[in-house]
Amino acid sequence: MAKDPQRRTEWTEAATDYVLDHGLIGLSLRPLAAELGTSDRMLLYHFGSKDELVAAVLRASNDRAVAQLAALPPSPDLRSAVGDLWAAVQAEPGDRCTRIYVEAAALGLFGREPYASVVREANAVWTTALVTHLVRSGVDRALAARAADVVDAAFMGFQLDLPLDVDPAARARAVADLADAVAALA
């Protein structure tokens, strides 16, 4: 039986939905396969390994988050762009995609594959999307690259704090302070 690329694509999207709902850590092929209406053996046939399936899911999740940024209209200025980007990261599906990224990045910190490699890939794609939004918003490319690094690092910190029930008003102040700091780079 020949591998069907369309089926692999369909299963990647469905598996991504499953992982966004259930998380990445502790992912088991049998429940995933049952949800997809197939067997774990068929998933392994089409993906080669659980690691390859996970890598495909991580890429698809990152692509969804990047598409959300690409759909943003240009922001009026650099300061506004920070708020607009944060709102996009917090909206569906960006918030769940970011949570999956954080799980993968945590596993990647220990050098565990495919997490480390796919997270490096995702970082490059994500940073390009941030820079692209900033440039579309009228920011000089060199400044946009610097600002994207700061924004990405701060957003990751904010994401790590989300489960800690940080006061929403305090988080809004932190995002506004970040916007002020990034705007001061200009």
Rank of each mutant, 00 (worst) to 15 (best):
M1G: 13
M1D: 04
A2V: 05
P5T: 01
R7Q: 15
E13H: 09
E13S: 10
A14N: 05
A15G: 11
T16H: 10
T16V: 06
Y18G: 09
Y18P: 08
Y18V: 09
G23D: 06
S28V: 12
L29A: 12
P31Q: 01
L32M: 15
A33V: 14
G37F: 15
G37T: 14
T38I: 09
D40G: 14
M42S: 12
L43R: 13
L44Y: 08
S49M: 05
K50N: 05
D51V: 00
L53N: 11
L53I: 07
L53C: 10
V54S: 01
A56K: 08
A56Y: 06
V57F: 11
R59H: 12
R64E: 12
A67P: 00
A67G: 15
L69F: 15
L69T: 00
A71T: 07
P74Q: 07
P74Y: 08
P76F: 06
D77N: 14
L78K: 14
R79N: 05
S80L: 04
V82E: 11
G83W: 00
D84F: 01
W86N: 14
Q90P: 10
P93W: 00
P93S: 00
G94P: 01
D95V: 12
R96V: 13
T98R: 15
Y101T: 09
V102W: 02
E103Y: 04
A104R: 03
A106V: 06
A106P: 02
G108F: 03
G111R: 01
R112F: 03
E113M: 03
P114L: 01
Y115L: 02
Y115D: 06
S117Y: 01
V119D: 06
R120T: 02
N123I: 04
V125L: 13
W126C: 05
T127W: 00
T128A: 14
A129V: 03
L130S: 05
T132H: 02
T132N: 02
T132A: 11
T132Y: 00
T132D: 11
H133W: 03
L134I: 05
V135K: 04
D140A: 13
D140T: 02
L143P: 00
A145D: 13
D152E: 15
A154P: 00
A154I: 09
F155Y: 13
F155D: 06
F158A: 14
F158G: 09
L160N: 12
D161R: 07
L162I: 06
L162M: 13
P163W: 07
P168I: 08
R171P: 06
A172L: 11
A172F: 07
A174R: 11
V175F: 13
A176D: 14
D177W: 07
L178H: 09
D180K: 09
A181H: 09
L185D: 04
